[in-house]
Each structure stands twice: as structure tokens, then as C-alpha cells.
Design a binder for these strands. Sequence first.
DNA 1: CTGAAAGCGCTAACAT
DNA 2: ATGTTAGCGCTTTCAG
Lengths: 341, 341
Amino acid sequence: MAITIIDVAKKAGVSPSTVSRVLSNHPRISPATAAKVREVLKELGYHPNIMAKSLVSKTTNTIGLILPKPAEELFLNLFFSEVIRGIVTQAARTGYDLMMTTGTTEREELEAVTRLVKGRRVDGVILLYSRQSDPLISFMLEHGFPFVLIGRSDEFPDILSVDNDNVQAAYDATRHLIAQGHKRIGFVSGPPNLIVSGDRMKGYLQALKDAGIEARPEWIVEGDFLQESGYRAMSFFMCLPERPTALVTIDDVVAFGVLRGLTELGYKVPDDLSLVGFNNISLSELSTPPISSMDIGIYQIGYTASQTLIRAVKGEAMPQKRVIIPHRLIVRESSLIQAKD
Amino acid sequence: MAITIIDVAKKAGVSPSTVSRVLSNHPRISPATAAKVREVLKELGYHPNIMAKSLVSKTTNTIGLILPKPAEELFLNLFFSEVIRGIVTQAARTGYDLMMTTGTTEREELEAVTRLVKGRRVDGVILLYSRQSDPLISFMLEHGFPFVLIGRSDEFPDILSVDNDNVQAAYDATRHLIAQGHKRIGFVSGPPNLIVSGDRMKGYLQALKDAGIEARPEWIVEGDFLQESGYRAMSFFMCLPERPTALVTIDDVVAFGVLRGLTELGYKVPDDLSLVGFNNISLSELSTPPISSMDIGIYQIGYTASQTLIRAVKGEAMPQKRVIIPHRLIVRESSLIQAKD
DNA sequence: CTGAAAGCGCTAACAT
DNA sequence: ATGTTAGCGCTTTCAG
């Protein structure tokens, strides 16, 4: 049997409420009794029952992380670990715990969230990634439950969110390729229903446009965040009568896939095709050749999201609804050659 | 205000206890009232307050995952995401949520665990990795708290655990290299205080011994699970007057590091040095050349650990204390050449 | 088969 | 400054 506040009260010869007060550093309590109580507290090895505390205080000191339905693919990506690392580090630092759920189907997903939110199991949640017209966002809004989105929502631009300027980032990545002299630049995108895919696509197109280069639909393919996606894109591109000389990919892992396919077919990077990825995962610098990548500060995204959410649940004033984490291009060999024509 | 069991009772014209019974599918309840109650339940959109339920039932339907102190490095490794993916998938499937904590220092770590365990915040915990004489294991044992270890404990062989046969796996990996004709085989290990490092080292040594090959201390180096570790090991080995012709590394990421260094120096894999890694992360097949790797079923480790723990907290009979996930070597180019001498 | 009542461990008025 | 009391929302004897 765990020891309760009452046990402590008895042993210290005071009332339970006094113990409670000591525990919460109530101002009006005599130093003498406080000391006495604290002593007994230590002696008995007391630890608060969080459930009981939550029941009355209506807070849990826990934040929830909702993994998007097709968590599978996310997990295969270093992005995921990095975000969590940021979240869990900051949360732990603030004395919060992290609760994770996911659902395989859309229904399961909503069920899991309902359990967390309506069951008052967490004080707020972090939504990872947003889809076009995400049902989860509407759900949170409807219930007036604190949350922050990692990503961006078209429908609800006014919610708390942490994101990159993905349009600008893709613009910059494409710009870099253009500066290297490339005129035929392709783009391997992610799932079209994800906002981030759209944003990066937009930046890519804008960069072409600003440089007076015409976009070619056949040089744009959509996939997921997996290597197969890159592999498929690569074989598609290389069979084209007129192929791109450079590629921007939605993720480094996709770039890996492209690279592998290219190598198998005997093509050389960057000589035959230049490559710029996104996310700057640790393995990008280890490939042969190392892959240029847009670093989007993933860890910081997680860290900031957690920080923002915790501030929000504590009712602190939010300086800004939308926090943008800066990006920066890491140029490596895969794009370090001037286009030949 | 969230709607409670009492609201439902009132509206359905029954007592709160009846509603509670319906909720928990109590047998002795008339189908008529059950139906009526369920209807109101739905109508009002009732959702149980988990804190209240936990307070009385003393269970939380939550399992805790304790990340080892130096969580940093773990996070940089795909191993982590895969394990979590397994855990969270199985937990969600069983209606459990996952709670994660970590601590930067050893004290913080113990504090976090104490919060979870003594605060009755979770029903059981999963320990990721075990160190030699791990204080967390003793802690759990002392408090009689349900837990399963991913890994192995020398001190307490009798605890619930999910693991690979790492000795055998390393044996097999080394064996493979020997079968390719190698006689000079090195080993890049992990942190010496981790049990897994010792186990794999043991298997490596045993394989050499069984093949009548003498182990050379200078061909064994210890590092962490990061690429730098591989890089350093590589530069060390290649400066040796007599160098190994093949390497077993504790992790694929380390193999990546070796590979990168080798490539930079102009060496070729597998021609100058054959490589076999561990964990078979998805990127292993994408490197140039693709890296042979021991697949240890990481996802399954997580899945099984979660399953085992949940069974344990439910008090189900445990068929076996220690579950071994099978391993299997995936041979790729990095070790696909006969040794020259 | 169902209701009344007690209580899980804690906090927060309201007293004193 | 401290004690008393009344719940938080739910489950669970114990009656009937």
C-alpha cells in the first residue's frame, strides 16, 4: 500500500490539509510545522498520487503527442525521432510527461484522441503534420482543447503552430540549383494531401518562375517520404526523352532512393544529376556522395512546439500564434557541380 | 463542463451505479436498462474521466517507456524509432497508451521513474537497454512494479525481458565473414557498460576461436552507436601495420561511418575491407555499396515487449520470462567478396 | 437486477 | 496558522 497524505498527517500530528499545504508551498504555514511535516514526508517516502491530484486539480502535467494515422512511414524517417527528441527534452525540463497515441485507421485515430482529450488525460496535445482539412484540428477547436500544430493549416491559419517557411525553403533549395547553372530541375514531392508537400511544391515553382524557367509537369512526381518513392521517381525521370539535370526531393530519404537507383544504373551524382534533399538527417553526409540538404531544425521544431503548448496550457500570454523555425541549406557534393548545358 | 456518469444516470432515470455497470458490461443487468443507458450515453456523448477511474481502480491503462539517460544518441539512431513504433502499435491495439520519460542526469532519470511508478501513473514500464548493474532494474524490483526489459540483465536473469540472442547473432555475423575467407576480422563495439556490447563481443570472439583464428586486441575498438565512432575506428584500423580485411560493427550507423571514412581515403568496400553491421536499418541497403547487416527484428522487439508487459500487468500467466527475437543476416555487397589472402 | 453509500487520495473553501 | 468538510468522477460492497 502506498503511503498517503493522511499517513503523513497522522505521524506528524497535523491535519491532511496542512500536509497538502506544505506540499504546495502555501505561504501561510508556520516554518516549524512545515519543517516537521517535511521531515515526516521524507521519512515515510511519500509520493503524491497523481491521479488523485489530477482529479481535483483538473490538470495532468502531461502533454499528448498524436502521431498521424500512417505513422508507419513517419517512423521510418529520422524526422520523427528528432521531433520527439525535441519535445521530450523540453517537456521533461518543464516537469511534464509525454503521452503518445496513434491509430491505424482514421476512426481509431479519432478514438485515441478522444480518449486523451475527453478523458482529461492530458493538458494539451501536439499534432504532428497536417493534412488538408484535417479532422483532428476541427476536433480540437470544437472542444476548445489546447493544442499546437507542427505544420500549417490552410483552413485555420490562426491556430498555434510551429513550422518552417516551407515555401521559402523550397524556393531557396531550387534557387541554389539554378545558381549552379541548372535549367532543367525536377521535384519529387510527398503525399499530395500533406500541407508541407504543397508548400514546398509552391516554392519550387516560384523559384523556377522567378528565374524565367518554365516548369515541366513531367518533371514533378508525387510520392511519400520513403526511399522507394525516390527510386521510382528516378527511373521515371531517367526514361524521359529530355531529363532534368537536377532534382529537389521532399526528404533526404527520398534522395537516398534516387541516389541508389542512379548508382545501380551507372549514373553519377552530381555529374549526371544534381541532388538537393530536405531535413538534413545525419546520414545525408555519409552517403556517397554526401547529399546537399535543407536543414529545417527538426529538433528545434519539437522543442518549440512543446514549449509553446506548455505555455498555452499554463495560460501564459502567447507572443505569436505561429512560430517559424529558420532553415538553412547545407551544400554538399551532390549539388556541387556546374550544370554542363 | 464535461458530462459525467451522474448526468447520464439522471437522464436515463437510473442510478449512477447502474450506469457504471453498463459501462463495464456487468453481467447482471437487464437488457432493457442497458439499452436505455447506452442510448443516453451516446446521446450525451459521455466519455469516462480516466483520472477518476484510475483513482479507484488503481490501473491506468498506460505503460511507461523509460529512455536511457543518454537518450541523445539513441534518438539519432533508427533503432529507437523502430522500437517505439512496435511498442506504440501494439499498445494502441490493446487500448493502452504510452507514456515516455527520460532524464538527463542519473538523478533526473530516477526522479522521472519515481514520478511514474510511485505516482501510480502507469501500470508497468518498459526499460530500454540495460547497463551493467542497472539501478533502474533494482528500483523496479524493490518496488515490485511490473516491468519488462528490452535487453538482458546479468544480475537478474529471471526478470521479464525481450532480447535477441546477441551472442549468437554476433557469432553468425563473424562466421559469415570467416566463410568468405577472412582471417583478419575486427570488431567495432558499443559502449562497454551496455550489456549488448558485451554479448556481441563475446559472440565475435567465440566465432574466431571456433575457427581457430586468434583474436587481436588491436582489432577491437569500443565506441558508441554513432557514425563518428565508426569513422574513428576506421582511421585507427587503417593506420595499423597489419590491418583487418573485414569488420563487424555494433550498428549500421557505425558501419556508415566506417564506409564514409574509407571512401574519403580512397579505399573500396568490400575490396579493401568487408563490412557487416547490425540492425538492418532501412538506409543500409541504400548506401554505396549496400551494407550487409544483421536484422534483429527491432519492430518485433518493441511489439513483443509491449505485449509481454501488458500481459504481465493484467496478471496473465507468462509462458516464459525471457523472449528471444530471432535474428537473420542480410547479405549485401559490402561483404560479398572472397578475401584475397 | 438495481440503488444507496462509502471511499480512492487529494485540494480548497470555510471555519476557527 | 491550522483543522473540518465537502467534493472531484468513478467503482464497489452491501442491501433489497
